[in-house]
């Protein structure tokens, strides 16, 4: 018997309904609803402390919510037993904020960890090869594969973390502030990488970010977290049409305007190139 699904739309990969999260007295989320559609890059924004990371942690099962239902790939993720949870875990990849690479393993071994865990029958030579092309696909130089995380720069750690997140060829990718702490060039390159991998691998991306440039450059839709819930989801023009003070300040503040103008300038260049 299958539990009735919340959303009968096959194109919804993540479906959150009535989520309530809190730590002791402090309530982080209340009555939060969110849908993530297949094949989109959904940006999640919100002020510090609005629970962006907590929302991600609840979806991936690291944090048990007080109330509410969460479905990923049409399956309820709360209160599952380990074997069922494992089946879902195989289908997603997660990039944590600091990369969260295992410090005692090399980059290549880090990428192999999920592969070995779920597919112990693959032989070592194939594992090495898979790790090698994944490392290159995420834009790292091949020489980085045998290095330990401590020998990598911050940007390279993020890429290595992404390579590990992509190890199982997931359908769904969670990125927690992927461009935080990167220089603007590195951040732009990472955005481009995310977009191109998303296109190549047909990923659905749940992307938490503070980076306005990332939002403008690669996100199909943006979800805004405020007042303990998702107050709006939509494309940036749709959000700008709303009359919420935080949204207005966020997108129309000095940084927001700068990001818009840079995107427009880039778009202009692109059309010139084509012409």
């Amino acid at each position: 018997m299958t539990a009735p699904t919340l959303s009968h739309d096959d194109d919804v990969v993540i479906c959150v309904r009535g989520l309530k999260n809190g730590f002791g007295e402090q309530i982080v989320h209340e009555d939060l609803d969110l849908d993530v559609r297949r094949g989109e890059i959904l940006g999640v924004v919100g002020g510090s402390g609005t629970g962006k990371s907590v929302l991600m942690r609840s979806i991936i099962g690291l944090q048990t919510p007080i109330e509410g239902e969460i479905e990923v790939f049409g399956e309820n993720t709360i209160g599952r037993d380990e074997t069922e949870a494992t089946e879902i875990r195989k289908r997603w990849g997660i990039l944590f904020q600091g990369g969260a690479l295992f410090s005692t393993l090399t980059v290549s071994e880090n990428v192999q960890v999920p592969l070995k865990e779920y597919y112990p029958k693959l032989d070592q030579a194939l594992l090495e090869e898979i790790a090698a092309y994944k490392v290159v696909m995420t834009g790292l130089p091949p020489e980085a594969a045998p290095k330990f995380p401590a020998e990598l720069s911050g940007g390279m750690k993020k890429r290595a973390g992404l390579a590990r997140a992509l190890a199982l060829d997931p359908e769904l990718l969670f990125l927690d502030e992927p461009t935080a702490g990167l220089d603007p060039i590195g951040a732009a390159a990472f955005d481009e990488l995310t977009a191109s991998l998303q296109k190549t691998l047909g990923l659905t991306v749940f992307l938490i970010t503070h980076d306005l440039d990332t939002l403008y450059a690669i996100c199909d839709r943006v979800a805004v977290l405020a007042d303990r819930k998702v107050i709006a989801v939509g494309t940036i023009p749709e959000l700008l049409a709303l009359d919420h003070p935080w949204i207005q300040e966020y997108f129309n503040g000095p940084r927001g305007r700068a990001a818009v103008s840079s995107v427009k300038a880039n778009a202009g260049h692109a059309t010139e190139d084509r012409g």
Partner: peptide
């Protein structure tokens, strides 16, 4: 075409590896 793109990307990422 979409799968061909993915295939090409994987081929492009190939490079010799040093086995342990």
């Amino acid at each position: 075409p979409a799968s061909q793109h993915l295939f090409d990307q994987v081929v492009a990422a190939e490079h010799p590896i040093e086995l342990p």
